[in-house]
Design a binder for these strands. Structure first.
Lengths: 226, 226
DNA sequence: TCTGTCCATATTGGATCCTATGTCGGGACT
DNA sequence: AGTCCCGACATAGGATCCAATATGGACAGA
């Protein structure tokens, strides 16, 4: 009899677990744009049958993270530069609404965010780009969740996930990575400070900050071929 | 041997057909917010096994059109007023980008749009709200498709679909319906004229026009209870 | 009469099996 | 030698079967 106490017992479905796993694999660059997601392989790996894998792929497909050609399979979506810039465009439009409406975090929450920030910096200095990305993601999501616009929050998160596969490529590009280093740390600092000062404009500016740098990188990087 | 000529042979999967069918059923109000989608029933109805139905539900679930409580089933999403207004908010933010970037339709295309417009007006006068809605939808989609921002277009369409279940309720409310009548016709006229005049501002204004009326309706309609 | 427990039934979740389709390679024909 | 056809293999798509969970009602006890 499963206790549903604090222990967060595995109440969740197989399909959802698989979805999460595939997402993480894509985020981590284990599955890269264009790669096929072989159903049996992942079923075996995640100790489930092929069915939940298929359902997970259907979900990811509807989110646009994988594309489906019938009778051939699902592959991680390849975005061209135009598509990627559209995603950034949408985030640029939607994110300000979240910033506008978010409630200011409590002391406790802010402290936790700062902890995540130092953890990210540590991961960075330990040259663990994947972990750093994950922490970055967590920080941003936590902040989004301060907004009452739950539907918009969901959308923005989804948009983030669509570019995850490419974010990984940036992070794992050593040269670029170290360039991004200082930028990331600065970004956190700015964000946290803005939260503490309760300054929405500064917060918005901090969020927007490295969009352009990111996009510029994609512009002349050729890995986003159609 | 399936010819893949002009005839657009049924190449598509069962799951996709089911997805489309369920969408249409929701749009038409056959499935209303809160209703459970019984898998076997729909499997029988669509002459497939339960599996494609499940996959379709997974897709619709990830789009937010249905919600899933484990071991109980999928039901058509109920949106409260706050959520609905968020969806309108997002459309308000995204749609102008489409208007900004769309190419002007050719004579032929414009003529087709006008045809759809008169068809919608006819449906309206024949008191066929469902058909009218569908035609409206087709018109808007066609116009969206004139923009090269394919990803944004996809998003906006998805947002439309999320409020479809409620649009139906508005359309099928007789009193309201006749009120909307004149508004709809005017809306088409304005849109087509703006397209013909190649006036982006007017087009944008025409699109935005009845958002507020719609939202006002929802504000004091109690069918969107949590 | 009210309440709590237990069992029957309906419905979903997951696994296995079978079929259809696509891919790749070898052999025959031109 | 090149090209086309055919068949074997791999993989996805779909159906059926079994297990797990939730719902509703009947029955027993206070």
């Amino acid at each position: 009899m499963p206790k549903t106490g604090l222990g967060v017992e595995r109440k969740t479905n197989a399909a959802e677990r698989v979805t999460a796993s595939l997402r993480k694999a894509i985020l981590r660059g284990e599955l890269r744009p264009g790669d096929y997601v072989r159903q049996e392989k992942w079923a075996a790996r995640l100790k489930v049958s092929r069915l939940p894998v298929r359902e997970a792929l259907k979900i990811l497909g509807s989110e646009g993270l994988v594309v489906h050609d019938p009778n051939r399979g699902y592959s991680v979506a390849k975005l061209d530069v135009a598509e990627m810039s559209q995603i950034y465009l949408m985030r640029r439009l939607l994110e300000p609404e979240l910033v506008k409406t978010l409630r200011w975090p409590r002391q406790r929450e802010l402290a936790q965010l700062r902890e995540l920030g130092v953890a990210a910096e540590r991961a960075l200095s330990e040259q663990d780009p994947v972990r750093c990305m994950e922490l970055e993601r967590t920080i941003d999501y936590r902040i989004y969740d301060l907004s009452p616009l739950n539907v918009v929050v969901r959308e923005v998160k989804r948009l983030w996930e669509l570019i995850d596969p490419y974010r990984f490529l940036v992070f794992s590009d050593p040269e670029r990575f170290y360039g991004a280093d200082r930028g990331l740390v600065m970004r956190h600092r700015r964000i946290f400070d803005a939260l503490e000062a309760r300054d929405r404009d500064a917060l918005q500016a901090a969020f927007t900050r490295n969009y352009d740098a990111m996009m510029a990188y994609f512009q002349h990087s050729p890995f986003a071929e159609s």
